[in-house]
Design a binder for these strands. Sequence first.
DNA 1: CGATTATTGGCACTCTCTGCCACTAAGTGA
DNA 2: TCACTTAGTGGCAGAGAGTGCCAATAATCG
Lengths: 212, 212
Amino acid sequence: MTDVVSEKPRRGRPPVSDAQRQQQRLDISRHAVRLFAEQGVAATSGEQIAQVAGVSERTFWRYFPHKESCVEPLLTKMIDAFCVVLRAWPAELGLIDHLREAYSPLLDSASDEDIAAVLAVVRLTQGERALRAAYLMLRERAEHALAEALAERTGLPPDAMEVRVQAAAMSAVLKVATDDIARTTSGGVTTDTLDRHREEIARALRGLSRLR
Amino acid sequence: MTDVVSEKPRRGRPPVSDAQRQQQRLDISRHAVRLFAEQGVAATSGEQIAQVAGVSERTFWRYFPHKESCVEPLLTKMIDAFCVVLRAWPAELGLIDHLREAYSPLLDSASDEDIAAVLAVVRLTQGERALRAAYLMLRERAEHALAEALAERTGLPPDAMEVRVQAAAMSAVLKVATDDIARTTSGGVTTDTLDRHREEIARALRGLSRLR
DNA sequence: CGATTATTGGCACTCTCTGCCACTAAGTGA
DNA sequence: TCACTTAGTGGCAGAGAGTGCCAATAATCG
């Protein structure tokens, strides 16, 4: 017994790969978000989402423990992308400059439709309390990721007060900027939507440091 | 018709005063929070809360549209108190100094039991997702109040980007500090629990301004 | 193919929350 | 005091959210 966990003769049907599961979730997510936007969250039943997504209601509830978590896959896609950018933040560069350099590629990594869908969700959260709550939970998860990136950068432990405070502040700034972009971007997503978002973030970060 | 709204011959049973309604909500809230802490949120049914609070289940659901909103009255009591302190923040004083002067009276305005209950709730939100979501929603409501105070102080409109950003950042700092206090305060509430909280906030605010 | 394990779908059930209606409570003017 | 009017309460039925359980199916290996 050289390795406790590797002792796997592996018989029977193998579990579905994690990537495939994520893909399936994302798929259902897109359907759900469309319905949410068209009819509102309350008026969209789990049964209906399952139906348009082509799965049984039972499996739908297995993929999403709560109805509102349908927005999760789409939103985390965007938030995770931002975290990747953050983690690549070189020590010698200011954050704003780094964003200007690295944030644009985000446009390429996601389809226009997904970006539009994400903005639609954020816009929805302004009026739908349940969605807003789910959204805030996701942002807090992102806050932890942000704290880790910050910790790595500064050498402090990720649960150090200073790290957590700065992560929380940056996360809050991101939230405000994103809300603003979502609110003011009514129609389709053009190339400069994300450019505007990046500049908005940069501006907000500058505004933050002016806090006395 | 000197006044459009005052034209009220007022017949029939008058509505209960707002204060009375709040009191009733607070009352139920205390029962609910105790049950939540003892058994967990999921294991506590609306029927049970209604029973120990001495109202019918139907009226309970009228007072609280969602089970988790039972924590609202207790939490807003604390958050509102902080907003009052903020609104009294004189222009010539630094925030940290102002807190040191004005925050302590909070101790007098609420009973020890309520303070302990609030901390218990915040501690609960660390493990109970549904409660955390409700908590974050409340904090966001507080964020708006904070933005208004900030706007009044600076003369800017409350929806100006700079105001919203700073309010969001301060709100986030408050959240982190409160989480920390709730986590480290295991037993009873002593006089210096809030003192520690105040200093924690002050320290966090200083840490915030060090963000580059 | 047969054994084995993962995933799915169906069914029944509990719990949350709402609409509706009758009933009681608390006031008004006659 | 009695009608009258309005507000709040409780009961009941029902839709929807979500879960546990089990049978059916799918995927893999020998």
